[in-house]
Design a protein around this nucleic acid. Structure first.
Lengths: 174, 174
DNA sequence: ATATTTTAATTCACTGGTGAAATATGAATC
DNA sequence: GATTCATATTTCACCAGTGAATTAAAATAT
């Protein structure tokens, strides 16, 4: 129990010692970065554990949600790659898996015949509508004790961080 | 460019539409949760891209850093599993990889002979000291434009979130 | 003391995801 | 209008991480 708290305590100590040895290290930033990584992973695990009973993994679920949230229920592998941040290779596999379960259909594109049109099926919509409500309580608990201001602040800071990460990313992929 | 920003814009629209269909959804919490997932992944990628030139992956690097940050430079597979949040299986592989590169040594435990003692080597310490400084500029940029207050706020909110996630986790693993 | 249960680490078979090459269509250039 | 170049998807071979079973050593119960 309290796994994260323990990991964080040990990180705080560790960063303290390391910045004793290497004082140029930006210790506050390192801590925030580690926190983001730890919480991100933990939330991912939490999510996967909620998806497991429905035998979907995160990227399959996300793909399905994007289609569900579209007015027309349609997209293409390439576009889904961008928004799910998955490689094309894996999107092919995800498509195969979802088609096999009848949650989406794949058809040839009309205008550009290189593109494949992916469309959520009625069964896919039902699946989403069945899966979402049970997630709401845990989702609410995740931010239990957060005031409206806390949530606004967190939202603001995360979006600001996103802007910086985009900058960093651009210098990686020139 | 601006990959994250675009993903976030599309998420905002998507959540808007979904909460039109399913109004019980806690939309603010869903947004924050998605933001944490997206940023967590992106930071992970950023980190991996910095580690790649040294042919270490995140979990290998983290393992090495934990050992480095210990006063005695020592741990055991089991303990490293807890703090890296990796399964024992994978820790065996990580150990193999790091031993093969001479960054750690593995020895039999004195008191409890089931436990394996893992110790960072001089080469391991040198590797860490070589790798860290080049990461500092990007780490600083990640939080560029964050005031001291912004950083304190973010730290506070993330630790609060960690507490909630520990609660959630306990109900999963009873 | 011996038998049982628990704990630590490893091995094996598998899943999810990636990079490089292949295929096929479309767009641009000569 | 043939050739070159760019884009969308798929296939193949590989890497990282997981769950179930295995081995060995402690701890506990009988």
């Amino acid at each position: 129990m309290d796994r994260l708290k323990q990991c964080i305590a040990m990180m705080d100590e560790g960063i303290g010692r390391v910045s004793g040895i290497i004082p140029q290290m930006p210790a506050d930033e390192a801590r925030l970065c580690r926190l983001m990584l730890m919480l991100g992973q933990d939330i991912e695990e939490e999510l996967e554990s909620e998806l497991k009973p429905n035998k979907l993994n995160h990227s399959e679920f996300l793909t399905l949600m994007i289609l569900y949230s579209r007015p027309d229920g349609i997209s293409t592998p390439g576009e889904l790659c961008e928004y799910t941040n998955q490689g094309a290779t894996n999107m092919t596999r995800i498509g195969n898996a979802l088609v096999k379960r009848g949650l989406i259909s794949r058809g040839s594109g009309a205008s550009d015949r290189r593109k494949v049109v992916i469309r959520i099926s009625a069964a896919g919509r039902r699946m989403v509508q069945k899966m979402l409500p049970p997630m709401f309580p845990r989702l609410a608990n995740m931010f239990g004790g957060f005031s409206a201001t806390d949530k606004r602040q967190l939202d603001r800071l995360l979006r600001k961080l996103a802007g910086n990460l985009d900058q960093l990313g651009e210098s990686r992929h020139p």
